[in-house]
């Protein structure tokens, strides 16, 4: 649905040349919710603006729905943009217009009759659950309601694609959930392809199928969300995952040398991350029996992502060196990612 080919974007300012986006190539499939995650300043907002050419890439091609946008003339580009909705962190509603007028603005001068526009705006407002707010001004709405108006406005021209630039970053956690559910609903019911830009792994986890991690303007890693959680390859990805997992609690303890993580000779502290299927097996108790180990679980974390369980355990293994070695082999055979955090085994 969306194809970015070798996108580069540079800005020049007083301090010199800034390479905001570096050779980004990616594909977003029709009907999927695709996430782009990165820290602030990583270039993700610039990248998403390259999709509808609010920012024109310095080099590279942008294809949306089979049309190369980078080759279009101004008038054709405007027409193409009508089929690419966009919502923003700060909602960007017009304060001087009512909710109805905000939603209708993209429909005026589009050849639709007044009655037709009214009918469509009312349908959109009921889709985003804002019936009865048509004649209210944005200043009278809450943040979540404003974002719903923005969603309705973005959907007015019946786009195939919706770009979300940090759309939930200005909202409280509960409102965030309701907006994410709304995005899922329009993805499923209207079959709109969605690109989500965020710095929050929890957003990716909740609604995305695939995700690109972006760092210093380039894609560091791209994967199915499930695969990314099970097997993060890049440090930046791991950092993001830790922000959502209680397993990350083990690291500060190690840094502070808390008594909880102090090992006796022969012990080893492991962090195990499970993919999907293994969680259903009683791994810990099996290892304990099979290899005669004492396993002391410090942290456990289990979550359901895209309907599949996913999680990990941080635990201290106590046993003979041979048995611990066998247990590690066993874990490897089960495709569990193991990280040795502390090791007090004899060499």
């Amino acid at each position: 649905m969306i194809r970015l080919e070798h996108i580069n974007k540079t800005f020049s300012d007083k301090s010199g040349l800034i390479h905001a986006v570096r050779d980004v190539t990616l594909r977003v499939r029709p009907g999927e919710i695709y996430g782009i995650i990165g820290h602030s300043g990583a270039g993700k907002s610039t990248l998403v603006r390259c999709v509808n050419l609010l920012e024109r890439p310095t080099s590279g091609q942008v294809w949306v729905d089979g049309v190369e946008l980078t080759a279009l003339r101004a008038g054709e580009l405007r027409k193409a943009r009508k089929k690419i909705g966009m919502i923003f962190q700060q909602f960007n509603l017009m304060a001087g217009r009512t909710v109805f007028q905000n939603v209708a603005i993209g429909l005026q001068y589009s050849g639709l009759s007044r009655a037709h526009i009214r009918e469509r705006v009312e349908r959109l407002l009921s889709f985003v659950e804002l019936e009865g707010k048509a004649n209210v001004y944005p200043s009278q709405l809450s943040g979540g309601q404003k974002q719903r108006v923005a969603v309705a406005r973005a959907l007015a021209n019946e786009p195939r694609v919706l770009l979300c630039d940090e759309a939930t970053s200005a909202l409280d956690p509960q409102t965030t959930q309701s907006i994410l559910s709304l995005l899922q609903k329009l993805n499923r019911e209207l079959n709109i392809t969605i690109v989500v830009i965020t710095h929050e792994m929890s957003v990716i986890k909740k609604i995305c199928q695939r995700v690109a991690v972006i760092e210093h303007g380039a894609i560091a890693e791209e994967n199915e969300v499930l695969g990314l959680f099970a097997n993060p390859r890049q440090q930046v990805t791991k950092d993001f995952l830790y922000t959502t997992s209680s397993l990350s609690g083990v690291y500060p303890l190690v840094r502070e040398d808390s008594p909880v993580v102090r090992l006796k000779p022969g012990e080893v502290l492991l962090l195990m991350r499970y993919g999907t299927t293994q969680v259903c097996q009683p791994l810990v108790s099996r290892m304990s029996k099979q290899f005669d180990l004492e396993i002391n679980i410090l942290f456990g974390d289990l979550e359901i992502i895209e309907g599949a369980p996913m999680g990990g355990t941080a635990a201290i293994f106590h046993g003979t060196p041979e048995n611990i070695k066998s247990a590690l082999k066993f874990l490897e055979a089960e495709h569990i990612t193991v990280e040795v955090i502390r090791d007090a085994r004899m060499a």
């Binding site: 943009r81 923003f88 960007n92 304060a95 001087g96 603005i105 406005r153 973005a154 021209n157």
Partner: peptide, 25 residues
């Protein structure tokens, strides 16, 4: 500027943005 950006993302022309966003808002 975000409001102007939103108007552009809706495919509005520059003249449309002047009259229906700048001068109205």
């Amino acid at each position: 500027g975000g409001v102007i950006e939103a108007a552009q993302s809706l495919g509005m022309s520059s003249l449309g943005i002047i009259f229906r966003v700048y001068l109205w808002e």
